[in-house]
Write a protein that binds this DNA or RNA. Sequence first.
DNA 1: GTCTATAGGGGGATAGAC
DNA 2: GTCTATCCCCCTATAGAC
Lengths: 222, 222
Amino acid sequence: MSLSPSRSDTKLAILDAAERLFATHGFRAASLRHLTAAAKVNLGAVNYHFSTKDELVLAVLRRRIQPVNEQRIAMLTRFEKEAGGRPVAVEKILEALFRPALQLALGRSGGRYFVRLIAQCLAEPDSYLQPLIYEEFAERNRRFHAALARTLPHLSNEEVHWRLHFVQGAFFHTVSNASVLKLSSKGRCQLVSIDSVLGKIITFCAAGLQARSAKKEGEKCK
Amino acid sequence: MSLSPSRSDTKLAILDAAERLFATHGFRAASLRHLTAAAKVNLGAVNYHFSTKDELVLAVLRRRIQPVNEQRIAMLTRFEKEAGGRPVAVEKILEALFRPALQLALGRSGGRYFVRLIAQCLAEPDSYLQPLIYEEFAERNRRFHAALARTLPHLSNEEVHWRLHFVQGAFFHTVSNASVLKLSSKGRCQLVSIDSVLGKIITFCAAGLQARSAKKEGEKCK
DNA sequence: GTCTATAGGGGGATAGAC
DNA sequence: GTCTATCCCCCTATAGAC
């Protein structure tokens, strides 16, 4: 694999172009011909370096997923150490979950395409991408679930799962469909500064997570 | 269009098969050949009834989007009348937003594929589907934004936009990616009863919406 | 109105020259 | 290692028979 002395900017150029074109046109719509043209490399180079288009898609995804989840877990670990054995504040847990992804999404590197790629993975039915998603996010989920369960002891295990799911939905939709928010607010709401978005979404999610669970919420309608 | 005496079960059969196959395999992966075979109609019938595949996709989407948004608005209107001029409780507003879509998603009709289709629309970049989304959801958003602004006068107009966006993200991700929740909770959390899901997500979102807005949330990290 | 046959265009993957 | 040419598949859309 990495035996040859090749500098392999070909491989990197393919990865960068694929990331951009997959995000802007979709996995299927972006053909190998399009992206090798954009990367100014040869068509055959993709099959040489990645065997198949599906493998290229996986390589594009893995390059971003792993670091961002590692950063999240590292930040959570740091907050846990700072708390010195006491439960971490819910706002801190949320910051560890959101900030690394926001930095990627609002940054200038190719990583800003990351959320659009994940959105496609989640939307694509019966795809070979689902296992990747599950594997990469399992450890992250486990860690954040545990932290939340400690901080919110009044919630059952199941309730923590539900609320973490809600939190992830709110966050994910916010960053991946920012254009919807921009349009429906007639341009007044946009994702610009990391800290301003962080403040808003952490306020919302922290309150939701801390809500007293109401067994009687499902009152009959009509 | 509807001048001929045709019973047009052909058209309906295509619509039903397309809805199911688009949802389970994706707009692009489900070919006209697949779905005409599933519908037991002829390949040419699609082009006869819908002109093009893209138009078929739009027809499939419109059939569900319009009714569900009308139901949401109707339910909100009913709650507003019941409130007799006073602001509607935030839980009621959320119920009007969630219940019709949940009924569709957890029901047995073809409508249960609805959320998967919307997920694809949102994930698909630079597509002819985005205008449909924006048009169909504009009126709904306007109405729910207005209701929330009345009920939560302490929030600025922009903050209502942001929080409504968070709410929609939490809800949408919950119903459209229920499989992720099921897996990460090892099967303990599943969408079964409408009222049980409604209770959980309304509790979460109501608390989030009512949270005191904290300008100082974006404290520096590190 | 419905079906068949086919046109016409891309797509991914590969074999073989350099 | 890199590039070119090509194979072969499947797709949408349409023209024309029934």
